[in-house]
Design a protein around this nucleic acid. Structure first.
Length: 271
DNA sequence: CCGGACGCCTGTCGGC
DNA sequence: TGCCGACAGGCGTCCG
């Protein structure tokens, strides 16, 4: 599913088509997403203009003249620009029809994503209000991770995937960042030193920035807002490379499971 | 409070 | 070829 770079890429792809366009119509073909699509998503948005598109964590915020649309892509969701003549396909659950004739089309086979409307400060929405800092902000750094992790006994991989601690880091980039930082994923978060957290924070920033620069990672079906795949897959050092040679030391990579999630690391380079 | 497991849902892939 | 289980990029909720 989309992690931060894929959501950012989606946002950037949509923005030129979306900003300053008026919402002409919203078609909801299936409201049974992670959270039911409420009537307000249609009733409060039609006739409004989109003034900005902002990413917060893995949410895409459509700033309207009045209120905000919030969209999360879940595990299998995508938002892409479609021309008005393209017929909808299976799993195309919602269309945002613009006055330009283009459609922002939401597809989500597994329906783990969701769409909301809020009149109030979107950052105070119940789904957003308890989120941790953005990983690419200055507030996120080694000192923050170090202090936040004291006394935590869970695996560092889970610690950085917990959106209360830092947002946007999913399974792919958690694996990749820990490889770059030379830290074993199963290490207890509370036992890692400050200098190692400095390196981990920098690794997370680097991996996310590099992935954004290449349009994200396409494993099977991710496509950007403008319809192109991401090219970061070829840059992955460990994810989905169990038993293949480490790109740094050539020893076979290891694969294990942490909290029901596939975990990849190099037993030699990561300690 | 913390940590871990579960479930939501569909599609795909590997093994038999 | 067909069936069946495992697994997949997330995350809110529940339980101990």
């Amino acid at each position: 599913m989309p992690e931060l770079p894929e959501v950012e890429t989606t946002c950037r792809g949509l923005a030129p088509h979306a900003i300053d366009r008026n919402i002409h119509q919203i078609i909801v073909r299936d409201s049974r997403l992670r959270w039911p699509v409420e009537a307000a998503v249609q009733s409060q948005t039609v006739g409004r203009s989109i003034r900005d598109l902002i990413r917060r964590a893995k949410y895409i915020l459509f700033k309207l003249d009045d209120g905000h649309l919030l969209i999360h892509l879940g595990m299998s969701g995508s938002l892409r620009i479609s021309d008005g003549d393209t017929p909808h396909e299976k799993h195309d659950h919602l269309d945002i029809c613009l006055d330009s004739g283009f459609i922002i089309r939401y597809r989500d086979p597994r329906r783990f994503g969701s769409v909301h409307w809020t009149a109030d400060d979107p950052y105070q929405h119940w789904l957003l209000k308890d989120l941790g800092p953005e990983p690419l902000s200055e507030a996120f750094n080694g000192t923050y991770l170090y202090e936040r992790s004291r006394g935590r006994r869970s695996a560092v991989k889970l610690f950085i995937m917990d959106s209360h601690n830092v947002v946007g880091v999913g399974n792919i980039y958690a694996n990749e960042a820990l490889f770059l930082a030379g830290i074993r994923p199963q290490t207890q978060a509370g036992k890692i030193s400050r200098p190692r957290y400095e390196r981990l924070a920098q690794s997370i920033k680097k991996i996310l920035n590099d992935a954004i620069a290449l349009g994200g990672t396409t494993l099977r079906d991710f496509i950007s807002g403008s319809g192109t795949p991401g090219y970061f897959r070829q840059e992955l050092n460990v994810y989905d490379r169990g038993d293949q040679p480490c790109r740094s030391c050539s020893r076979p990579l290891r694969e294990s499971v942490i909290n029901q999630r596939a975990t990849y690391y190099c037993g030699n380079c990561q300690r």
